[in-house]
């Protein structure tokens, strides 16, 4: 149970970063930390103590495998997270070039 709590704590760390940081890049880092905590949670869902990795090889002896589906989901989610992060960072760089700063308090062209 404690590992699930650690995942949740990591998620909260990321959320804290997103909510309190004023720097665009640090916000992106916060989001990444949240993503990673969820990936950990997914791998834990499928984990079975003492089971082998779910890869079929010739002449194998193990009979019990960990659940491969959450691992496949994590791989897909990592690809999506890569796309999101690349997108966020490129927007952050563009913003930097417009405002000459990463501080979100300086960016106020949108109102109400």
């Amino acid at each position: 149970m404690i590992v699930y709590l650690l995942c949740f704590t990591l998620f909260l760390v990321g959320l804290y970063g997103v909510l309190t940081q004023r720097n665009l890049v640090k916000i992106v880092i916060g989001l990444s930390i949240m993503e990673i905590s969820i990936f950990l949670f997914f791998t834990l869902i499928g984990y079975i103590q003492g089971a082998a990795a779910p890869i079929v090889v010739r002449g194998q002896v193990e009979t019990q495998f960990v659940d491969p589906l959450p691992q496949a989901m994590v791989l897909t989610a990592i690809v999506i997270a890569l796309a999101t992060n690349a997108m966020l960072l490129s927007i952050a760089i563009r913003l930097y070039r417009k405002y000459k700063t990463f501080d979100i308090r300086e960016m106020r062209s949108l109102k109400g």
Partner: peptide
């Protein structure tokens, strides 16, 4: 392509 774009941004900046 992503990293190339980031390199170009940096060079331009």
């Amino acid at each position: 392509a992503i990293i190339l774009a980031l390199i170009i941004y940096k060079e331009e900046a």
